[in-house]
Amino acid sequence: MIEFAGSLLLNLAYFAAFLAVTSLVVFPFYYAVLSSADRGEDRTGAGLFWNIMFWLVVVLICLIAIFPFYYAILTSLETGTAIFRVNYLPESFDLRNYESVLGGRSFVRSVLNSVFIAATTVIFALFLAVTASYALARVRFRGRGLLLMTILAVSMFPQIAVLSGLFELINWLGIYNTPWALILSYTIFTLPFTVWVLTTFMRDLPVEIEEAAIVDGATPWVIISKVFLPLLWPALVTTGLLAFIGAWNEFLFALTFTVDETKRTVPVAIALLSGASEQEIPWGPIMAASVIVTVPLIVLVLVFQRKIVAGLTAGGVKG
């Protein structure tokens, strides 16, 4: 017991020291950013120095954010021994890795599986979430706050905690090793998420429009379908996209509930991509596969940039 307390204290001390060192290292960068607005056209030596620091921060952020993906593309275009020579700039343009990935039937199959599963999950979740979020955002009833908290709690669930029970359920339903097993299990996080985000969006719609509709004789269902849905479609796109990304990236359930190579989703396929022998990891094809599944996502995210940021923050922060 004393030994345990001692090691705990020691580790706490380590952690404190770690935080202190990190803060010290980061502080100059913070300072450069914080004072950037005040500095303006400061031409003195100090001003110049902090300006350079500011741009250093900006460049570092971009570099660190982009480099790994850039390097994956670089690697995916190299084969043979070229792949094992470290290079920072593109040296070869060889599409054989892509050919081998797309040539093998199972990877294309995995992509199709992923698209089907993620799309179905999202459509199903949105369908249930639209009506539910109307009730949660617009109708006063007792226990509403508690219900919202419960829904949020479900989305925070450790997925491992339901794994064995879900396994039993899926087996009982006879959908093990089919896409439906994943569609069902993904509902556990897509549904609470979509309900949550749509509720925050729905709350922001003006009350008087709904009241005007009530006076006009609209039932709750008509309010949703004829008045709110047309106003909410941007929010629906955002929420759907975020839920789609979540389902597309899921790994644990996909790993557990599928066995056949033809039933796998993309993340499992990439994780289990193996070469001719156990020891040899096929880095080239792995990077090619990674690039193939990531590029569409990145394009989507960049196109819907503003909406995604709004959606993420609707789920998180509420001033």
């Binding site: 952020i61 390097y71 990077m287």
Partner: peptide, 29 residues
């Protein structure tokens, strides 16, 4: 541009980033 850039790590599937970094952190190459 910076905002777009930082969205990239977020958009990349966890498994893919694990593999990408696994390659970058490879002991020999």
């Amino acid at each position: 541009f910076v905002r777009a850039a930082i969205l990239i790590p977020w958009a990349i599937p966890t498994i893919v980033s694990a593999k990408m970094w696994g390659w970058m952190l490879n002991d020999q190459f």
